[in-house]
Design a protein around this nucleic acid. Structure first.
Lengths: 350, 350
DNA sequence: GTGAAAGCGCTAACAC
DNA sequence: GTGTTAGCGCTTTCAC
């Protein structure tokens, strides 16, 4: 951190005291009238009058002073692994909407996968006395979560979750999503299906992979027809690398289920290189239905997740956690659906 | 705003005073050693020792208390018109990176186009004593900017700018971008070119449109061959509506320059409906080169803007503005390039 | 239902 | 170069 110039202090704003004097009431009364939690302590008509003048004159009490006094900030930190992954737009949008409805502002940090950086950011935001965190970054066994738990920091998870249910989380039903994808492909006639998994350290990678195995077993078909490969990262590039490797080893595959849309797009890249056509030669299914998934070529068949909804649920979970830190941890699971577009078709020769 | 439950206060953390006692120094010395701006007031070895222990024990002074004392918060508010527009990912990423390097955290608000909502959010964040704002929302004549100027709030603009140079801004060279697009199409042999403009209340809409007119005039070609239409909004849907109208009126157009990528994607939708092929029947050029522009079908030829860089520049401008509020306003213009992909080709019959 | 007063934790002017 | 002290603006206990 570099601090270039000594930053001139901003203009001092009107204080509660000044404003109260103007309205001919005591600062305490003013404070009580303006705070939703204490408003009922003030005579109803007086409270209304105070709120009205505050609204018209645009007076807002200094949040830093309030925070110093109360130990709470109405600020929430959100840690994202990769803001340029379009799937986080609707998640973030759902989070901020629900939080702002609850009176909270959101500080977003794009921290990447580096756990030490994540920890540093947690400390930065803790110095700001944020009331809690929403993590979209967690591994199945996450040091950041441990760190928060040890320090009594309120935290919930979104999209990804941990192996152990130590904290509340809002996630999609990963197993069911893969079932939807598999059912769809099997109905189309595919038998040699590959799964391009996300790293197993991520719940989305792990659980979708497990589900794939389960479904393969349940179908009682020849498991050898299917194939598995884990990508090194969640990105288009990692998807391309993994898909290339998978198709090199198993050129007989007629369909690939990617653990998410970015990996699916990487698969597109690999297919293009290999001069294979999608869906004619290989069908591809994604996961998440991120914005623009309908516009890529071919439009991507993918497991649709209600991301805004999931973000909103995570926000609610955090608000509940802040209100009652000891309460039981909850797991909110949103049910995905399959959005069929043009990247899937019956296999060649049918 | 609803406040559900009375939110239990978080655990009180270690104070500067306690921590100073632990290190056997006075709180003032501790404070000075920990603050980059006052570190030089403390004996060098002592400062180093204090910083080291603070780092290992993870001590951070309460930012709310510091903010109350200094009137500054090292918080910046960023107002976006539409977080789900992928072009804002790299802009935001550039902003937060540069700001965090300067010691600032970022509060992002997705406020839409509603000016009253924007004003309300400005007030919310002002109550938090943010040190300044970066606006990606402005109109060519913007009430929010006026509001900030009247109240001495530090503010800079990104991506869009105002008609008058009242505040600093980081923008792309809109005129040059259109020139690049036009040159490209003309070289391919197009003569009947349409421009799908963004709303003229936005600088990007206005300036790209003006540039289109200028270039048409300069080419001394038959201006009547060209065509203009302004979309109602910056969205794929508005782009589809406008493109449909444009092609209904002028079926002879062989190319369309959209004022941005979302409008270009809407144009794709319209072409698909009309059973016209891109680029065979109609070439399309976008603007911004947002993430995934290379993956849509066909891959979009578009004016590439260094969005991360632009966001970073905006952050620098705000940091300068905070340090020296009276200083001359600056306009940082990043120069775009043309990224040619597959949505442009020579017109039919050549 | 309203007023008085203390104090949250920090920084910066001042004293030495 | 370090210590002392006052006070930023709010909330909340207590008194009335």
């Amino acid at each position: 951190v570099r601090r270039a110039k000594p930053a001139v202090p901003g203009p001092r704003a009107v204080t509660l005291k000044q404003f109260a004097a103007h309205a001919r009431v005591h600062a305490s009364t003013e404070s009580r009238a303006l705070n939703p939690a204490t408003r009922r302590l003030v005579a109803d008509d007086l409270a209304k009058k105070i709120q009205a003048t505050a609204a018209t004159l645009g007076f807002r009490p200094n949040a830093a002073a309030a925070s110093l006094r109360t130990g709470r900030s109405h600020l929430v930190g959100v840690l994202l692994p990769d803001i340029s992954n379009p799937v986080f737009s609707p998640i973030l949008s759902g989070i901020t909407e629900a939080l702002s409805f609850g009176g909270y502002s959101t500080i977003v940090a794009d921290v990447g996968e580096d756990v030490d950086r994540q920890l540093r950011l947690i400390d930065d935001l803790r110095a700001r006395r944020v009331d809690g965190f929403i993590l979209a970054t967690v591994h199945r066994d996450d040091r950041v979560v441990s760190y928060c738990l040890e320090r009594n920091i309120r935290v919930v998870l979104v999209n990804r979750s941990e192996r152990r249910p130590r904290v509340s989380a809002a996630v999609s039903d990963d197993e069911f999503g893969i079932e939807l994808a598999m059912d769809h492909l099997v109905k189309l006639g595919h038998r040699a299906i590959g799964h391009l998994a996300a790293p197993a350290r991520l719940s989305t990678g792990y659980r979708r992979l497990q589900s794939f195995k389960t479904v393969v077993a349940r179908l009682e078909q020849n498991g050898k027809l299917c194939h598995l490969l884990e990508a090194d990262a969640v990105s288009r590039e990692a998807g391309a690398v993994a898909a290339r490797a998978m198709l090199a080893e198993r050129p007989d595959l007629t369909a690939i289920i990617a653990a998410n849309d970015l990996l699916a797009l990487g698969t597109y890249d690999a297919l293009r290189e290999l001069k294979l056509k999608c869906p004619e030669d290989v069908s591809v299914v994604g996961h998440n239905d991120m914005p623009l998934a309908d516009l890529v070529s071919p439009p991507l068949t993918t497991v649709h997740i209600g991301c805004r909804e999931m973000g909103g649920e995570a926000a609610q979970l955090l608000i509940a956690e802040i209100a009652e830190p000891g309460a039981l941890k909850r797991n909110v699971v949103v049910r995905p659906t399959l959005t069929v577009r043009s990247s899937t078709a019956p296999p060649r020769g049918r």
